Amino acid sequence: MNRRATAEDVAKAAGVSQATVSRVFTPGGSVSKKAREKVEKAAQDLGYRPNALARGLTQRRTGLIGVVTGDLSSLYDCQLLSHLCGALRGEQWQPLLLRTARSDETGGALLEAMAYQVDAIILAAGSVPPSILDETQTFHTPILMLGKGPTPGVDTICCDNPAGVRLVARHLLAAGHRRIAYIAGNPAAFSERERQAGFTEALAAAGGSLVAVAPGDYTYEGGQAAALSLLTSPTPPDAIFCGNDTMALGALDAARHILGLSVPRDVAIVGFDDITMAAWPGYRLTTVQQPMEKTVAAAVSLLRQRLDGEDLLPQSIRIPVSLVLRASTRPLDV
């Protein structure tokens, strides 16, 4: 056969109807053992695979979940995406990944996902103009945004950034640090705005303040450059809090390997996320842990409720965080 086998070809080869072929390849379809064996053998001989998209459209479900991602050079985003895709497949959903190079492309990616007749969409990057969110409401496709605060018409899940940065502020102050600097990520990101503002407020509440803020753009190179600038200034900080772990790893390497400083004796460094590398022996980074498993579990639970037709108001979920103490900060008993 010089063309792709169809359900009609399988039906003829097996001596059954096309409806029987359809039931064989539909989960839970009612068909006799003899007919199933005949259809499966014919399908194997012909190299036939059912068209999942066509079957899904007939059933008004494709089984596809659109996942809009950003720059996959982010270590945290890569780990989260891996957990998320695994969990979606565990629910018999197939993730359809759409990558955006810039945050302002997210709206276009959202509309592109709609064109694939996805059952729901998870936005794991960027922000969407309200006009596009309004437009998508006509599709009646559930939308879930990760790393965002309450947004009209959609579900959101975000870690408790304010609680996390308060933990960092209290720990650094309790360890005796007073010249505390901050390395910032993308100022347009919701989590970055919450982290920087919350950290500044937490220090002020304890009578302290930031001595400096340097941009790091959420990258290893950005964190390294920012740390070099801060630590070679006339009045260098004695502690640096970074808006994510990737920048913190760059800051650690700058302090230790470029400037020859002792961490934490000369400067303490703290991150946010608790990516896998943070626990590596070469870093042992103190950081705020975002529990990915809980984030993904909450996302799957919300999607299941939406796709089961539960009529809920838009949900905004905050995931609790914790401070993981490692060797990049001083023990409190010193």
Rank of each mutant, 00 (worst) to 15 (best):
V118A: 12
D119H: 02
A120K: 11
A120H: 05
I121L: 14
I122P: 08
L123N: 07
A124H: 01
A125C: 11
A125F: 10
A125H: 13
G126P: 13
G126S: 14
S127A: 13
S127G: 12
V128M: 00
V128W: 07
P129T: 03
P130L: 12
S131V: 14
S131T: 15
I132T: 14
L133K: 14
L133Q: 13
L133E: 13
D134L: 11
E135P: 01
E135D: 07
T136N: 13
T136E: 15
Q137Y: 00
Q137H: 07
Q137E: 13
Q137A: 14
Q137I: 06
T138V: 14
F139L: 04
H140Q: 15
H140P: 00
H140E: 14
H140D: 14
T141G: 01
T141L: 02
T141V: 15
I143K: 03
L146V: 06
L146D: 07
G149K: 03
G149D: 12
P150H: 03
T151N: 05
T151K: 01
T151S: 00
P152N: 07
P152I: 05
P152H: 01
G153E: 09
G153V: 03
D155F: 00
T156L: 09
C158H: 03
C158G: 06
C159H: 05
C159E: 06
P162S: 12
A163E: 11
G164H: 07
G164I: 11
R166V: 01
R166C: 07
L167G: 04
L167I: 06
L167T: 03
L167H: 05
V168M: 11
V168H: 05
V168N: 02
V168T: 00
A169P: 10
A169K: 02
A169I: 08
R170H: 09
R170D: 06
R170V: 09
R170L: 01
H171F: 00
